[in-house]
Amino acid sequence: MNIVVCIKRVPATDTRIKVGADGTSIDETQVESIISPYDEFAVEAALQLKEAAGAGEVTVVSLGPAETTKELRTCLAMGADKAVLLKDGDAAKRDAQTTAAALAACISGLNADLVLCGKQAVDRDQGQVGTLLAAKLGLPCVTEIKKLEVADGKATVERAGDGGTTETWNVTLPAVLTTTKGLNEPRYAGLKGIMAAKKKPIEEVDAALDDAHITVKSLELPPPRREGRIIGEGPDAVDELMRLLREEAKVL
């Protein structure tokens, strides 16, 4: 089975955000990067499917700046076979449609049986590239899966539905699935993996980018929250809390 995984290079989750000089994106100097956490579940799922089948190939694709080879190398060290970097210095700012189109142009040539994405890249938090990619490739899509089984060219997946329900979907492959927490525990790349990754190929190509579909007018920091306040100590503070919730916050 040919499995393609889409990963995005994003700022580490503990990054302090500063507005960049252009006023529409963040200041990326001194920002540590990581693989977007949800994408790690996608990589792990692909590796587990390949291992279970004892055959197949896992290709990792990313639209990102040249430095994304660091994140792609990590995926190779985890066990992926090869990687494709669609070079785009401004990948962080691309809208979902442009990103999906660039990924689709690459993936349509990869003969994939399954395409896995994270449910959301934790930079722009758009939560839609996987679904748009499926639309562009003309493939079925199930989002936010927390369980995945593949047999006989079909995937059976579970996702959380409304009101605490669990939905089971039967999906004909090829398909695009987006992953969420709970699906698996992503592995760490061991020393052996890191050594092996050095010999694995990363193909670098210029991304095919269309014009933006949506305009970012401005990026700003949120207004500061009201200053935190300690109202008391121990159980005796409960009366004062009740009073504040009733009279000041009016939430009771």
Partner: peptide, 15 residues
Amino acid sequence: RRPVYAGKALVNVSA
């Protein structure tokens, strides 16, 4: 207007 970077920033977008 939508939060980005897990609410650490906000963007204003239009089309």
